[in-house]
């Protein structure tokens, strides 16, 4: 063990996160969720199960919503990664985040950032999704507090708001 606590096969990799190249030093099989949270300080990507089954750690990779807990660092290199911090902030919310607040589509909120990312990926691809398409986009997401109906309402509201602001 070295003083930095690293093992021999640690490598330096460059990740493109929220539009910025970030250099990280870690073992290549490190799940992306830990790199984002601990090396890059992007804590909105949450640990829920580590098995890709709950969606709490969802990020957008090249336009697709994917869980980051079973995505090794080496496979994330060379891709465009977006986390919840990359879409908006408290001072400048993304329409999906704004809709979640307008609808109060949360209780504990722990599942929400992953769901927000899934919704953003969906709306970027399909600006006017059917209710079925929204539900299908949340297939891999779990919520335990029972905010589901509000979350669906918020995503529908965000689609409307985004369509309005996109109109000429």
């Amino acid at each position: 063990m070295t003083s930095a606590g690293m093992d021999a096969d640690v490598t330096v990799r460059t990740l493109r996160v929220n539009g910025v190249d970030r250099e990280v030093t870690a073992a290549p099989d490190t799940p992306l969720v830990y790199i984002l949270r601990n090396d890059l300080g992007l804590k909105g990507t949450r640990f829920g199960c580590g098995e890709g089954q709950c969606g709490a750690c969802t990020v957008i990779l090249d336009g697709r919503a994917v869980p980051s807990c079973d995505l090794p660092l080496w496979s994330a290199e060379g891709h465009e990664i977006t986390t919840v911090e990359g879409i908006g902030s408290e001072g400048g919310l993304h329409p999906v985040q704004q809709a979640f607040i307008d609808v109060q589509a949360a209780q504990c909120g722990y599942c929400c950032d992953g769901i927000v990312m899934a919704a953003v990926a969906l709306l970027d691809r399909v600006p006017d999704p059917t209710d079925e398409a929204i539900v299908a986009a949340l297939e891999r997401h779990l919520c335990r507090c029972g905010a589901h109906t509000r979350i669906l309402r918020a995503i529908r509201a965000a689609a409307v708001a985004m369509a309005k602001s996109a109109a000429p």
């Binding site: 985040q97 109060q104 949360a106």
Partner: peptide
Amino acid sequence: SSVQRRDLPAKLTGGAYVHDMSLPRMVH
């Protein structure tokens, strides 16, 4: 009145839970 939850903006934009805390020299 239906005042909006005060904790949600932080929770919807990044770190907000004990899971997200960090201290100097912290280990996992």
